[in-house]
Simulated scan of single mutants.
Amino acid sequence: MTSYDDLPDSDLTERLRLGDSAAFAEVYERFFVVLYKHALNRLRDEEQAKDIVQELFEDLWSKKASLFIQSNLSNYLYTAIRNKVLKVIAHQNVVSAYAAKQVAFLKPDEGLTDHRVRERQLAAIIEKEVQSLPPKMKAVFELSRKHNYTHKEIAEQMDITEQSVRSHIKNALKILKIKFRLVYYMLMIFW
Rank of each mutant, 00 (worst) to 15 (best):
R42D: 15
L43S: 03
L43T: 03
E47M: 05
V53A: 04
L56Y: 01
L56W: 00
L56C: 00
K63L: 07
A65K: 13
A65C: 10
A65F: 09
S66E: 12
S66N: 14
F68A: 14
S71A: 11
S71W: 05
N72D: 14
N72R: 07
N72L: 00
S74L: 09
I81C: 08
K84D: 05
V88N: 02
V88L: 04
I89L: 09
I89F: 03
N93K: 08
V94N: 12
V94F: 05
V94W: 06
Y98S: 13
A99Q: 15
A99R: 15
A100G: 15
A104M: 07
F105Q: 11
T113N: 09
T113I: 03
D114H: 13
H115S: 14
R116Q: 15
R116S: 14
E119A: 09
Q121N: 08
L122T: 07
V130E: 02
L133V: 01
P134W: 08
P134F: 05
K136T: 13
K138T: 03
V140T: 14
E142N: 14
L143E: 03
S144W: 12
R145C: 13
K146N: 06
H147Y: 15
Y149I: 05
T150N: 00
T150K: 00
I154T: 06
A155E: 11
E156G: 04
E156V: 06
Q157K: 15
Q157V: 12
M158E: 06
M158F: 05
D159Y: 05
D159V: 08
T161F: 06
V165R: 03
H168W: 07
I169N: 10
I169Y: 11
N171H: 14
A172F: 02
